[in-house]
Design a protein around this nucleic acid. Sequence first.
DNA 1: AATTAGCACTGTGGACCATGGAGTGCCAGG
DNA 2: CCTGGCACTCCATGGTCCACAGTGCTAATT
Lengths: 337, 337
Amino acid sequence: MLNERKLAVLRAVVEDFVNTNEPVGSRALADRHPLGVSPATIRNDMVALEEDGYIAQPHTSAGRVPTDKGYRLFVDRLSSVKPLSVAERRAIESFLGNTVDLDEIVARTVRLLAQLTRQVAIVQYPSLTRSSVQHVELVPLGNQRIMMVVITDTGRVEQRVIDGLEAVSERAVNDLRAMLNRAIAGCYLGDVPDAVDDLPAQVPPEHRGIAVSVLSVLLESLVESHEEKIVLAGTANLAAVDFAASFKDVLEALEENMVLIRLLGEAKDPSMLTVSIGEENFHEGLRSTSVVSADYGVGNQSLAKIGVVGPTRMDYPGTMGAVRAVARYVGQILAGQ
Amino acid sequence: MLNERKLAVLRAVVEDFVNTNEPVGSRALADRHPLGVSPATIRNDMVALEEDGYIAQPHTSAGRVPTDKGYRLFVDRLSSVKPLSVAERRAIESFLGNTVDLDEIVARTVRLLAQLTRQVAIVQYPSLTRSSVQHVELVPLGNQRIMMVVITDTGRVEQRVIDGLEAVSERAVNDLRAMLNRAIAGCYLGDVPDAVDDLPAQVPPEHRGIAVSVLSVLLESLVESHEEKIVLAGTANLAAVDFAASFKDVLEALEENMVLIRLLGEAKDPSMLTVSIGEENFHEGLRSTSVVSADYGVGNQSLAKIGVVGPTRMDYPGTMGAVRAVARYVGQILAGQ
DNA sequence: AATTAGCACTGTGGACCATGGAGTGCCAGG
DNA sequence: CCTGGCACTCCATGGTCCACAGTGCTAATT
């Protein structure tokens, strides 16, 4: 049913439509692509492709436009990830080199990705659950409050104030800090609950109340940090596109943190590129967009995801190349830290 | 030249145009506002207002539209800040109550403001320079690196890694930490440079190198934190407006952190509302927007600014009321922390 | 002197229409 | 199975026309 040539036609339709943003007709195809057949033949193939739902006509006497299903086939079987140009690689290096701060790495990454793809870029902060505790710091604030700072090996810092304690002695805080660090330094965050399980028992009774408060805040902060931090850039690029849906809907969707998290979270296969096209997206407002996402991490351990949101009519090979390259570079930089 | 009635006409023009988004004609004005005169008289007044540049006609046979100058007069002399409704006040309270984290306060504030005004909201993190050092923490990471965490009384935390040191003993770090805290705890960040000036002299020579590194990173981080952190929300509200300028320009401007900082920074009079209208804005892309901003802080000390960006054609009294109210609430909450 | 009614005038936007063109589907012949 | 040819369809474009909203001006009124 779908011989080589029909696939070639589909590929050509996708490529031309992405370039021109206009329905592509049989003659234009025959002209611009070396298919070696006449427009009439192409027309016949198009009828077949249309019957199978890969392309569609906006109206009777117009050219064809790829459907979501058509893009899907294109991405899965007809295209390959396009490696970046030398200039682009150099841009990445100079953009991400010399960064100190995790915040800065993330901020630059997202801007870089938006610029490379000319679309909206999303970057998720490295997950806490996969990273390990470097150090826990307890700082007395005044007399009845303690600030807890958890520092992880990926450079991320979580702080939290513990409130409403009875008076705390400097000494007690020091002891507790030492004990905490002995228990969980080097520990994966996911393992922290187990690791601190029997701590209260080791604390002298007069300080047990404080210890319990601190631990409960610690555990709580680990749970909460599950709602990950996410950064956006390049929303202005949306203006260049004319969406089927009002793009107010798109902007609204992109402002919802939960939506973004789920959007990236749908990537199934870690260490691979994931593409979600049009109707495949779970969110109403994003039905006319596609999402290209990838994992990044250190070694073969995935820490979080990055991605790009654009119109379904996007340059998939190029976007996929950019996303993959940036993901790799970020991983390298985090590893080097 | 501008008698009472002409001002009333201008006010009516602004109000109607803000409501309808259509040029307003003399008849509509006479109908909807109790001016007590006939359309013909209003027409005469309009001619005067137009000669003075307060209103303009899109084309010969259309109604009138306020100019930037007209809005300016309206804001300065013809309108008063509209207090929030009870429901709105309650929304603020429930939205901002029960917040722990500074990050969360800021995040909620910006979303709240966007929702109240139905425009783009901007919130600046509390300035570091005006706050004081609560505590400085030094954490050895491995053998040759130290992480420095500065905690301020406004709950903000700055962290930084100090790299490339010779081997550091636990003991040396403890001494240095104690010394640092003795020198600058409670100190305003602006005064820190003076306060640490003679510290290296007090350090035993064998640790002086480390002390100098730490101090230089500390001072550097104070300078850098001058580039303040800023948060945005509600960009989707822009979609509802049809800008003169392509609103791609607006989005682009809003993505530039430096632009936002300057935008808020232009507020002259602390503790007052500042309104910058259309052409008054320094930035190209924002020539068809207005910015309403206000200071917030604790007591009479301004910590940072919040603001709203919308079309020049905005509901100034309402927006100003919302911005002022939110600024006050945030101040209260920070004070209560 | 200020206000008003009346009236002629003027762009705009929508409706309507005609037309050219791009693209299709199908058929018959290679 | 491919291709040239042809009739058909629908859209986009541009032109014309008209109704309408609103103006500016003048003359009359208070």
